[in-house]
Design a protein around this nucleic acid. Structure first.
Lengths: 148, 148
DNA sequence: GGGTAATGGTTGTATTTGTAACCAACAACG
DNA sequence: CGTTGTTGGTTACAAATACAACCATTACCC
């Protein structure tokens, strides 16, 4: 491979990805922050419980690839807001199954609807083919990373 | 638009983008962290100076869309490492033109080469068409954001 | 010129995050 | 059973970040 092929920062994927992610994330972040005082990890935990039903913190962490301390604090904040309850598993008393309260479900429904619209607006800036390719690429790049 | 069209977290662009960006960024972050004790913003400032030549902090901030306090602290760290010098513009003594030292250029050359390889490895996981589309989409999505 | 605003950049403080250490409950094995 | 190792989860403390307030200098404008 030609060693003199120059490095172009504008096309460097980690840079571009992070850049775009921050820009795109900002818009929706303001919504869940303003409406419910949530942080990103809190929204993610809420979203996972809303999408996939009750589960424990470890599972959320592995699905969202988020460290357990972040999950722990997000869950603490969400229970303080009465959006989530924890139910200690009687079979294994270390585990706690997390579950949305009625208020949590309402917040999730509200935010999910906005997220969907937000996502459509983003997708509308691309052709359907581009959008499909983008999703495919992001998923490809996100999995099986070396020493992830 | 069908309101019952469900929200799918796995395909939600802000989520996917952030997810992928974090995963992909990690690998290269470890390199500049281990080799030079740099933080991400430090690497970015170094990269901008290396790519585009001397400029002031404000310009870097607007190019990289990074807040000026972050730039300021990154520059402080880089000058402490003797990678960057600041030269107060005598025409406007508020401005300081930042410039890579010889050591800074060396670090940039080192990291840019690694970054290029790293990027090639990432690109190799996609078809050329996918890669091109991905870059195009990321750039489209990153610009002209509503109330950015 | 003298007052006000705008700009380049830094510093202070409150949040947020990362890393490691930690506790309690369970598992595995002698 | 004890002892050792794991696992689910929390807490403590250091590092990093965001946000606002702050200097110093320059621009505007009467």
């Amino acid at each position: 491979m030609s060693d003199d092929d120059p490095f172009r920062l504008q096309d460097f994927l980690p840079y571009l990805l992070n850049h775009t992610a921050e820009d795109v994330g900002q818009g929706f972040a303001r919504i869940y922050k303003d409406r419910y005082g949530m942080l990103r990890t809190e929204w993610r935990v809420l979203a996972h419980l809303g999408q996939f039903g009750p589960m424990d913190a470890t599972r959320i962490g592995s699905m969202a690839r988020v460290h357990k301390t972040k999950i722990s604090r997000a869950v603490a904040a969400l229970t303080a807001k009465r959006f989530v309850t924890r139910d200690t598993d009687q079979g294994d008393r270390r585990r706690a199954v997390l579950c949305l309260t009625r208020a949590g479900q309402a917040a999730y429904a509200d935010l999910a609807a906005i997220a969907r619209d937000h996502d459509r607006a983003l997708a509308a800036r691309l052709t359907p083919q581009e959008h499909a390719t983008l999703l495919r690429c992001l998923k490809k790049l996100g999995q099986d990373l070396p020493q992830g």
